[in-house]
Design a protein around this nucleic acid. Sequence first.
DNA 1: ATCGTTTATCGTAGATTTGCGATGAATCAA
DNA 2: TTGATTCATCGCAAATCTACGATAAACGAT
Lengths: 102, 102
Amino acid sequence: MKVLAEQPISENADQELARFAKALGHPTRLQILQLLDSQACCFTGDLVEVIPAAQSTISQHLKELKNAGLIQGEINPPRVKYCINKENWRKAKLLFTAFFEE
Amino acid sequence: MKVLAEQPISENADQELARFAKALGHPTRLQILQLLDSQACCFTGDLVEVIPAAQSTISQHLKELKNAGLIQGEINPPRVKYCINKENWRKAKLLFTAFFEE
DNA sequence: ATCGTTTATCGTAGATTTGCGATGAATCAA
DNA sequence: TTGATTCATCGCAAATCTACGATAAACGAT
């Protein structure tokens, strides 16, 4: 059986923040997140039209963002609609805010 | 002539934020930043005592944080005193805040 | 000049990341 | 069933990251 949301079982704040930060550590991934956050959601193809990279490359970045928990994909054949994972987005925001205000 | 603060000449917000995020994307570097921010500053040796990694490894992480512009080192022979780079720390905080609140 | 202390850098090995084209999987339409 | 569409995954190469021990560099003290 395939686990859908594959996040580590136990993780301290540092590890979680590092995981989020790492996912944000690439301009293309930032651009994807900004696009997903400005519009409600969008399909992979929409991103491919806007972002100057191969389809496979964008798909790979989407996978990493999904593994980091920052986005989620909903199958909508033959397309996949991606959205921000609001719960983790909020969690990331809190972690970053706390980090910079300690 | 050696340039001390080696940041790219021109960089858009995405690239800069990605650079900061990438530097934050490792637990050890987060720990270093937290230590530097809690105390005013400290020497490399102080970090080596607290963080479970080899001296050369920590020195390397310090270098990356310095290259990202998040910290700065002041030579105090035979030691080096590291501090948060407050200007860029503030800049990073603003970029992250803006990113999560757009 | 030599020694001890502190830190950076070098060299290396293994792991991970990045990017791409090619291919595969899933689905709908004809 | 055959195509067409959309997207993920595979396989690969190059680059970067990570960690470490060993060594070098800088300096004060003796």
